[in-house]
Design a protein around this nucleic acid. Structure first.
Ligand code: SF4
Ligand code: SF4
Lengths: 140, 140
DNA sequence: TAGTAATAAGATGTTATTTATCCTGTTTAT
DNA sequence: ATAAACAGGATAAATAACATCTTATTACTA
Protein backbone atom coordinates (compact mmCIF):
# COMPACT_ATOMS: atom_id res chain seq x y z
CA UNK A 1 0.00 0.00 0.00
CA UNK A 2 2.83 2.36 -0.77
CA UNK A 3 4.20 4.25 -3.68
CA UNK A 4 7.48 2.89 -4.91
CA UNK A 5 10.58 4.92 -4.45
CA UNK A 6 10.75 5.17 -8.18
CA UNK A 7 7.40 6.88 -8.28
CA UNK A 8 8.61 9.32 -5.68
CA UNK A 9 11.74 9.94 -7.69
CA UNK A 10 9.66 10.55 -10.75
CA UNK A 11 7.54 13.07 -8.90
CA UNK A 12 10.59 14.87 -7.58
CA UNK A 13 12.14 14.93 -11.03
CA UNK A 14 9.05 16.35 -12.67
CA UNK A 15 8.77 18.85 -9.86
CA UNK A 16 12.31 19.95 -10.49
CA UNK A 17 11.69 20.26 -14.21
CA UNK A 18 8.54 22.24 -13.60
CA UNK A 19 10.56 24.97 -11.97
CA UNK A 20 12.62 25.50 -15.08
CA UNK A 21 11.90 28.21 -17.63
CA UNK A 22 9.80 26.68 -20.37
CA UNK A 23 11.73 24.68 -22.93
CA UNK A 24 14.96 24.60 -21.00
CA UNK A 25 16.88 21.38 -20.44
CA UNK A 26 18.25 20.24 -17.14
CA UNK A 27 20.78 17.47 -16.85
CA UNK A 28 19.63 14.38 -15.09
CA UNK A 29 22.80 14.52 -13.05
CA UNK A 30 21.75 17.92 -11.80
CA UNK A 31 18.31 16.66 -10.92
CA UNK A 32 19.84 13.79 -9.02
CA UNK A 33 22.10 16.15 -7.14
CA UNK A 34 19.43 18.64 -6.21
CA UNK A 35 16.97 15.98 -5.14
CA UNK A 36 19.52 13.63 -3.63
CA UNK A 37 18.55 10.72 -5.84
CA UNK A 38 20.72 7.86 -7.11
CA UNK A 39 21.82 9.12 -10.48
CA UNK A 40 21.72 5.96 -12.54
CA UNK A 41 18.43 4.89 -11.15
CA UNK A 42 17.01 8.27 -11.90
CA UNK A 43 18.11 7.85 -15.49
CA UNK A 44 15.94 4.77 -15.74
CA UNK A 45 13.10 6.66 -14.22
CA UNK A 46 13.52 9.48 -16.70
CA UNK A 47 13.45 6.97 -19.51
CA UNK A 48 10.10 5.77 -18.34
CA UNK A 49 8.74 9.28 -18.17
CA UNK A 50 10.08 9.86 -21.64
CA UNK A 51 8.43 6.76 -23.07
CA UNK A 52 5.10 7.89 -21.71
CA UNK A 53 5.64 11.26 -23.26
CA UNK A 54 5.83 13.39 -20.14
CA UNK A 55 9.40 14.48 -20.74
CA UNK A 56 11.80 14.86 -23.63
CA UNK A 57 15.47 14.13 -23.51
CA UNK A 58 18.38 15.30 -25.58
CA UNK A 59 21.67 13.52 -25.68
CA UNK A 60 25.15 14.80 -25.97
CA UNK A 61 26.60 18.07 -24.84
CA UNK A 62 24.04 20.63 -23.77
CA UNK A 63 21.66 17.75 -23.49
CA UNK A 64 19.39 16.92 -20.64
CA UNK A 65 15.74 16.50 -19.80
CA UNK A 66 12.80 18.81 -20.05
CA UNK A 67 9.06 18.56 -19.85
CA UNK A 68 7.33 17.54 -23.04
CA UNK A 69 4.06 18.82 -21.72
CA UNK A 70 3.25 22.04 -19.95
CA UNK A 71 3.30 21.67 -16.17
CA UNK A 72 -0.21 23.07 -16.11
CA UNK A 73 -1.41 19.77 -17.49
CA UNK A 74 0.54 17.30 -15.40
CA UNK A 75 -0.67 15.97 -12.09
CA UNK A 76 0.84 13.62 -9.58
CA UNK A 77 -1.61 11.00 -10.71
CA UNK A 78 -0.14 11.25 -14.20
CA UNK A 79 3.39 10.76 -12.99
CA UNK A 80 2.54 7.80 -10.81
CA UNK A 81 0.51 6.33 -13.61
CA UNK A 82 3.50 6.63 -15.91
CA UNK A 83 5.53 4.34 -13.73
CA UNK A 84 3.00 1.94 -12.33
CA UNK A 85 0.55 1.84 -15.16
CA UNK A 86 -3.08 2.31 -14.28
CA UNK A 87 -3.30 2.49 -10.52
CA UNK A 88 -5.25 -0.32 -8.87
CA UNK A 89 -5.24 -0.66 -5.15
CA UNK A 90 -6.46 -4.24 -5.36
CA UNK A 91 -6.00 -6.86 -8.08
CA UNK A 92 -9.74 -7.30 -8.57
CA UNK A 93 -9.96 -3.67 -9.64
CA UNK A 94 -7.92 -4.25 -12.73
CA UNK A 95 -9.31 -7.26 -14.54
CA UNK A 96 -7.97 -10.74 -14.92
CA UNK A 97 -8.36 -11.67 -11.28
CA UNK A 98 -10.66 -14.45 -10.27
CA UNK A 99 -12.56 -14.14 -7.02
CA UNK A 100 -15.64 -16.17 -6.19
CA UNK A 101 -17.24 -13.25 -4.35
CA UNK A 102 -16.83 -10.84 -7.16
CA UNK A 103 -20.36 -10.75 -8.53
CA UNK A 104 -21.95 -9.79 -5.23
CA UNK A 105 -18.98 -8.30 -3.45
CA UNK A 106 -19.64 -5.07 -1.64
CA UNK A 107 -16.04 -4.76 -0.63
CA UNK A 108 -15.19 -4.42 -4.27
CA UNK A 109 -17.41 -1.40 -4.51
CA UNK A 110 -15.82 0.24 -1.53
CA UNK A 111 -12.30 -0.35 -2.76
CA UNK A 112 -13.35 1.08 -6.06
CA UNK A 113 -14.71 4.20 -4.46
CA UNK A 114 -11.67 4.55 -2.26
CA UNK A 115 -9.45 4.33 -5.29
CA UNK A 116 -11.49 6.93 -7.07
CA UNK A 117 -11.17 9.24 -4.10
CA UNK A 118 -7.43 8.72 -4.05
CA UNK A 119 -7.04 9.41 -7.73
CA UNK A 120 -9.26 12.44 -7.59
CA UNK A 121 -7.13 13.92 -4.88
CA UNK A 122 -3.92 13.08 -6.70
CA UNK A 123 -5.27 14.71 -9.81
CA UNK A 124 -6.39 17.95 -8.27
CA UNK A 125 -3.30 20.09 -8.45
CA UNK A 126 -1.03 20.44 -11.42
CA UNK A 127 2.72 20.69 -11.29
CA UNK A 128 2.44 24.30 -12.29
CA UNK A 129 0.74 24.93 -9.00
CA UNK A 130 3.04 22.62 -7.11
CA UNK A 131 6.16 24.28 -8.39
CA UNK A 132 4.72 27.71 -7.81
CA UNK A 133 4.46 29.91 -10.84
CA UNK A 134 6.41 32.72 -9.24
CA UNK A 135 9.27 30.55 -8.15
CA UNK A 136 10.58 29.84 -11.61
CA UNK A 137 14.24 29.31 -11.33
CA UNK A 138 16.34 31.71 -13.32
CA UNK A 139 18.91 30.30 -15.70
CA UNK A 140 21.39 33.12 -15.64
CA UNK B 1 0.39 0.87 -4.55
CA UNK B 2 -1.59 -2.25 -3.86
CA UNK B 3 -3.06 -4.02 -0.92
CA UNK B 4 -1.23 -7.21 -0.07
CA UNK B 5 -2.96 -10.49 -0.61
CA UNK B 6 -2.86 -10.95 3.11
CA UNK B 7 -4.90 -7.81 3.60
CA UNK B 8 -7.42 -9.10 1.14
CA UNK B 9 -7.52 -12.43 2.91
CA UNK B 10 -8.06 -10.65 6.18
CA UNK B 11 -10.95 -8.70 4.73
CA UNK B 12 -12.54 -11.82 3.32
CA UNK B 13 -12.12 -13.61 6.64
CA UNK B 14 -13.70 -10.83 8.63
CA UNK B 15 -16.46 -10.61 6.08
CA UNK B 16 -17.14 -14.30 6.50
CA UNK B 17 -17.16 -13.99 10.27
CA UNK B 18 -19.50 -11.05 10.09
CA UNK B 19 -22.14 -13.24 8.54
CA UNK B 20 -22.15 -15.56 11.51
CA UNK B 21 -24.67 -15.32 14.32
CA UNK B 22 -23.15 -13.29 17.10
CA UNK B 23 -20.73 -15.15 19.32
CA UNK B 24 -20.47 -18.19 17.12
CA UNK B 25 -17.13 -19.69 16.12
CA UNK B 26 -16.15 -20.70 12.64
CA UNK B 27 -13.15 -22.86 11.93
CA UNK B 28 -10.40 -21.24 10.01
CA UNK B 29 -10.39 -24.27 7.74
CA UNK B 30 -13.99 -23.53 6.87
CA UNK B 31 -13.18 -19.92 6.15
CA UNK B 32 -10.36 -20.98 3.92
CA UNK B 33 -12.63 -23.35 2.07
CA UNK B 34 -15.46 -20.91 1.56
CA UNK B 35 -13.19 -18.10 0.49
CA UNK B 36 -10.74 -20.26 -1.42
CA UNK B 37 -7.75 -19.12 0.60
CA UNK B 38 -4.57 -21.03 1.43
CA UNK B 39 -5.39 -22.51 4.81
CA UNK B 40 -2.09 -22.21 6.62
CA UNK B 41 -1.49 -18.73 5.41
CA UNK B 42 -4.93 -17.75 6.53
CA UNK B 43 -4.07 -19.05 9.98
CA UNK B 44 -1.24 -16.58 10.16
CA UNK B 45 -3.54 -13.87 9.04
CA UNK B 46 -6.06 -14.77 11.70
CA UNK B 47 -3.33 -14.64 14.30
CA UNK B 48 -2.59 -11.09 13.30
CA UNK B 49 -6.23 -10.12 13.53
CA UNK B 50 -6.36 -11.77 16.94
CA UNK B 51 -3.33 -9.90 18.24
CA UNK B 52 -4.90 -6.63 17.24
CA UNK B 53 -8.06 -7.62 19.02
CA UNK B 54 -10.40 -7.83 16.08
CA UNK B 55 -11.08 -11.54 16.46
CA UNK B 56 -10.92 -14.17 19.16
CA UNK B 57 -9.83 -17.72 18.68
CA UNK B 58 -10.48 -20.88 20.59
CA UNK B 59 -8.36 -23.96 20.25
CA UNK B 60 -9.26 -27.59 20.37
CA UNK B 61 -12.47 -29.28 19.40
CA UNK B 62 -15.36 -26.93 18.75
CA UNK B 63 -12.76 -24.26 18.45
CA UNK B 64 -12.43 -21.70 15.74
CA UNK B 65 -12.49 -17.99 15.18
CA UNK B 66 -15.07 -15.35 15.88
CA UNK B 67 -15.23 -11.59 15.96
CA UNK B 68 -14.10 -9.99 19.18
CA UNK B 69 -15.85 -6.80 18.23
CA UNK B 70 -19.28 -6.24 16.80
CA UNK B 71 -19.26 -5.98 13.03
CA UNK B 72 -21.01 -2.64 13.38
CA UNK B 73 -17.75 -1.18 14.56
CA UNK B 74 -15.29 -2.71 12.12
CA UNK B 75 -14.40 -1.12 8.81
CA UNK B 76 -12.14 -2.16 5.99
CA UNK B 77 -9.70 0.48 7.11
CA UNK B 78 -9.47 -1.26 10.48
CA UNK B 79 -8.74 -4.62 8.94
CA UNK B 80 -6.11 -3.30 6.61
CA UNK B 81 -4.59 -1.31 9.42
CA UNK B 82 -4.37 -4.47 11.48
CA UNK B 83 -2.11 -6.09 8.95
CA UNK B 84 -0.11 -3.21 7.60
CA UNK B 85 -0.02 -1.00 10.64
CA UNK B 86 -0.94 2.59 10.08
CA UNK B 87 -1.49 3.03 6.39
CA UNK B 88 0.98 5.38 4.69
CA UNK B 89 0.99 5.70 0.95
CA UNK B 90 4.45 7.27 1.01
CA UNK B 91 7.30 6.88 3.48
CA UNK B 92 7.40 10.58 4.26
CA UNK B 93 3.88 10.33 5.62
CA UNK B 94 4.92 8.11 8.47
CA UNK B 95 7.92 9.66 10.13
CA UNK B 96 11.54 8.67 10.11
CA UNK B 97 12.09 9.47 6.48
CA UNK B 98 14.54 12.13 5.44
CA UNK B 99 13.73 14.27 2.44
CA UNK B 100 15.33 17.61 1.79
CA UNK B 101 12.12 19.00 0.30
CA UNK B 102 10.03 18.09 3.26
CA UNK B 103 9.68 21.48 4.96
CA UNK B 104 8.29 23.24 1.93
CA UNK B 105 6.99 20.29 -0.01
CA UNK B 106 3.57 20.74 -1.54
CA UNK B 107 3.57 17.22 -2.85
CA UNK B 108 3.63 16.04 0.72
CA UNK B 109 0.41 17.87 1.41
CA UNK B 110 -1.29 16.37 -1.58
CA UNK B 111 -0.24 12.86 -0.73
CA UNK B 112 -1.50 13.46 2.74
CA UNK B 113 -4.87 14.62 1.52
CA UNK B 114 -5.08 11.74 -0.92
CA UNK B 115 -4.38 9.32 1.86
CA UNK B 116 -7.02 10.92 4.03
CA UNK B 117 -9.52 10.60 1.23
CA UNK B 118 -8.64 6.96 0.81
CA UNK B 119 -8.97 6.20 4.49
CA UNK B 120 -12.20 8.09 4.78
CA UNK B 121 -13.70 6.05 2.02
CA UNK B 122 -12.38 2.80 3.48
CA UNK B 123 -13.86 3.72 6.84
CA UNK B 124 -17.31 4.60 5.64
CA UNK B 125 -19.10 1.29 5.76
CA UNK B 126 -18.93 -1.21 8.57
CA UNK B 127 -18.80 -4.94 8.16
CA UNK B 128 -22.31 -5.15 9.48
CA UNK B 129 -23.40 -3.28 6.39
CA UNK B 130 -21.05 -5.18 4.15
CA UNK B 131 -22.25 -8.54 5.29
CA UNK B 132 -25.85 -7.48 5.10
CA UNK B 133 -27.75 -7.69 8.35
CA UNK B 134 -30.48 -9.81 6.86
CA UNK B 135 -28.14 -12.33 5.35
CA UNK B 136 -26.98 -13.83 8.63
CA UNK B 137 -26.13 -17.39 7.99
CA UNK B 138 -28.10 -19.92 10.02
CA UNK B 139 -26.15 -22.40 12.09
CA UNK B 140 -28.43 -25.42 12.12
C1' DT C 1 -7.26 -39.78 31.15
C1' DA C 2 -6.39 -41.00 26.41
C1' DG C 3 -7.49 -39.35 22.05
C1' DT C 4 -8.59 -36.09 18.77
C1' DA C 5 -9.48 -31.66 16.88
C1' DA C 6 -8.31 -27.26 16.63
C1' DT C 7 -5.23 -22.92 16.78
C1' DA C 8 -0.14 -20.90 18.00
C1' DA C 9 4.19 -20.08 16.71
C1' DG C 10 8.72 -20.49 14.89
C1' DA C 11 11.51 -21.99 11.08
C1' DT C 12 12.08 -22.38 6.53
C1' DG C 13 11.50 -21.96 1.66
C1' DT C 14 10.07 -19.84 -2.74
C1' DT C 15 9.09 -16.28 -5.73
C1' DA C 16 8.42 -11.60 -7.10
C1' DT C 17 9.43 -6.93 -6.69
C1' DT C 18 12.15 -3.14 -5.62
C1' DT C 19 16.17 -0.82 -5.86
C1' DA C 20 19.83 -0.25 -7.61
C1' DT C 21 24.73 -0.56 -10.40
C1' DC C 22 27.64 -1.65 -14.42
C1' DC C 23 28.89 -1.62 -18.96
C1' DT C 24 28.50 -0.64 -23.65
C1' DG C 25 26.24 1.88 -27.21
C1' DT C 26 24.39 6.04 -29.40
C1' DT C 27 23.61 10.83 -30.06
C1' DT C 28 25.12 15.69 -30.32
C1' DA C 29 27.52 20.15 -29.72
C1' DT C 30 31.94 22.00 -30.23
C1' DA D 1 37.70 13.93 -33.36
C1' DT D 2 36.32 14.37 -28.83
C1' DA D 3 33.92 14.82 -24.83
C1' DA D 4 29.36 15.16 -22.78
C1' DA D 5 25.16 13.42 -22.12
C1' DC D 6 21.25 9.99 -22.39
C1' DA D 7 19.75 4.78 -23.91
C1' DG D 8 19.38 0.30 -22.85
C1' DG D 9 20.61 -4.41 -21.63
C1' DA D 10 22.55 -7.34 -18.10
C1' DT D 11 23.26 -8.22 -13.62
C1' DA D 12 22.92 -8.14 -8.68
C1' DA D 13 21.59 -7.20 -3.91
C1' DA D 14 18.02 -6.33 -0.72
C1' DT D 15 13.54 -6.60 0.62
C1' DA D 16 8.98 -8.04 0.80
C1' DA D 17 5.25 -11.11 -0.33
C1' DC D 18 3.47 -15.51 -0.23
C1' DA D 19 3.36 -19.82 1.41
C1' DT D 20 4.31 -24.38 3.75
C1' DC D 21 6.23 -27.46 7.42
C1' DT D 22 6.77 -28.88 11.87
C1' DT D 23 6.17 -28.92 16.64
C1' DA D 24 3.77 -27.05 20.38
C1' DT D 25 -0.33 -26.02 23.10
C1' DT D 26 -5.11 -25.99 24.21
C1' DA D 27 -9.66 -27.91 24.90
C1' DC D 28 -13.44 -30.85 24.15
C1' DT D 29 -15.15 -35.72 24.36
C1' DA D 30 -15.55 -40.29 25.26
S1 SF4 E 1 -13.58 -10.28 -2.07
FE1 SF4 E 1 -14.42 -8.57 -3.21
S2 SF4 E 1 -12.83 -7.02 -3.03
FE2 SF4 E 1 -11.85 -8.92 -2.46
S3 SF4 E 1 -10.99 -9.70 -4.40
FE3 SF4 E 1 -13.01 -10.59 -4.22
S4 SF4 E 1 -14.29 -9.17 -5.36
FE4 SF4 E 1 -12.41 -8.07 -4.94
S1 SF4 F 1 9.38 15.29 -2.06
FE1 SF4 F 1 7.69 15.83 -0.72
S2 SF4 F 1 6.32 14.10 -0.92
FE2 SF4 F 1 8.26 13.39 -1.73
S3 SF4 F 1 9.28 12.45 0.05
FE3 SF4 F 1 9.95 14.59 -0.01
S4 SF4 F 1 8.48 15.59 1.36
FE4 SF4 F 1 7.56 13.64 0.85
Amino acid sequence: MQLTRQSEYAIRAVLELSMLPEGEFMQSRAIAARQELPEQFLNKTVQILARVGLVETRRGMQGGVRLAVRPESITIADVIGAGEGKIAINPCLSGGYHCANRPSCRVHGILNRAQEALLTELGKETFAELAGEDEKRITS
